[in-house]
Amino acid sequence: MHSSTTTGFFDITTEQGLLRTSIAVTLFIACIGIAFGLASGSFSIVFDGVYSLVDASMSGLSLMVVRLITSHASSLQMSRKLRERFTMGFWHLEPMVLALNGILLSGVAIYALINAVSSLLEGGRHLEFGIAMVYAALTVTACVTIAVIEGKANRKLRSDFVAMDVKGWVMSASITAALLIAFCFGYAVQGTSLEWVSPYIDPAVLALVCLVIVPLPMSVVRQALADIFLVTPGDLKQHVDVVAQAFVERHDLQSYRAYVAKVGRSREIELYFIVPPQMAAKTIEQWDAWRNEIGEAIGGEGPNRWLTVVFTGDPEWAE
């Protein structure tokens, strides 16, 4: 019983299970990274550990938001008080967390870059390349493995949180791979005429890695900010316009107004149809049949689609 529960907790076929697995592996890598970094005297390894800790904390926050979104959508495990306070759901938290995640990761990299440049100007630092190489090899293997597992699973899940997490693992693998190459070079030049470059290897590689990392989360941050500010996605608006215009022509209505937004994984659509004053009265069943027709034409029905369809004879209600 205990084994099946543990398996379910880290079920890599679910969004929450993947995030839990990622958090566990990240915390492990972070702890050994900081320990190995202090033991070898490498600030770049310490940075790698701190970067992993920030990533793990944001994955934990992402997991909390995922639980809130899925619980509200399925009406399961959600307290009545919480549901009454957030009647519109928790979709709006997703882009906030994604933006915070990207900004924090870039911020950590900027801070490390400043420290790396400062270390270079001070003459670099000496470190134990053997210990550093062992850490780098183990970490690259772990990062690549978890990135591949999450990437394959997310082909079906299509989760923004998991996608961001995969990017984080790819970045971590790239960072550590660069460190491994540098440490191997540093180890190889010991006792040679190039040994003088040894103190500069750690801060120089860290600076280069940070320059690569800083802009990487920006595309996610940009999309998250667009969701926060309810920027209308062009492709979804175009699709809704085509469906609404065809509906107006098919049923001889006057016109329509469409309001579309993407908030995290949700698609929020409001449609107002202007009905001619001379149109004959309809029953509730007939109006609902029209709403069903619109919903089927738009598609994407599910817990993450918020569709409102209004029929009115007064254009002011649609503005």
Rank of each mutant, 00 (worst) to 15 (best):
L61Y: 11
F9P: 05
I32R: 07
V189Q: 10
I175R: 11
L253M: 15
I32S: 14
G168Q: 02
A289K: 03
S106D: 08
A35K: 01
V97Q: 09
V263F: 00
I110E: 04
E249F: 04
G102R: 05
L18W: 00
P277G: 01
A142H: 05
P217Y: 07
M133Y: 02
L93H: 06
H126V: 12
E296C: 02
M88E: 15
A56T: 11
G264T: 03
V166A: 02
R67Y: 15
I201N: 08
T13L: 00
L211R: 01
V275A: 09
G124F: 03
G60W: 09
A177C: 08
V231L: 12
Q16T: 14
T13N: 15
L19K: 09
L208V: 15
R291F: 05
A73P: 07
V205D: 05
L236A: 12
F273Q: 07
A30H: 06
L113V: 05
N304A: 09
P199Q: 06
D288F: 00
L225N: 07
I23M: 15
S118E: 13
G299W: 12
W91R: 01
I149C: 10
V189M: 10
L157Y: 02
A112R: 10
S57E: 09
S74K: 06
H72A: 14
M96A: 10
L104E: 04
K167I: 07
A116Q: 09
V117I: 14
T145A: 13
V50A: 13
E15G: 03
D55E: 08
T308S: 14
P276V: 12
M88N: 13
S4P: 02
C210T: 09
F9R: 14
L253E: 14
P95V: 08
L68S: 12
T145G: 12
L98F: 01
L271Q: 05
I12V: 14
M133R: 10
W306V: 13
P199D: 06
Y256C: 06
R250K: 13
S62V: 02
R67G: 15
P95A: 02
D165E: 04
A142T: 14
V170F: 08
L157H: 00
E122V: 05
F28W: 06
G130P: 03
E285L: 05
P215G: 06
C184N: 00
H2P: 01
R125H: 09
S57Q: 01
F247K: 01
L27A: 13
P203V: 03
A109Q: 05
T145H: 00
G49A: 04
V65N: 03
T232Q: 13
A153E: 07
A280K: 10
T139I: 02
G295I: 06
I269D: 10
V170Q: 10
N115W: 08
L38R: 00
R222F: 10
A153R: 09
L38K: 00
T87L: 11
G191W: 06
N304Q: 08
F36V: 04
V66A: 12
K282M: 11
A182T: 13
F9D: 11
E268F: 08
W287M: 01
T13E: 15
K262F: 04
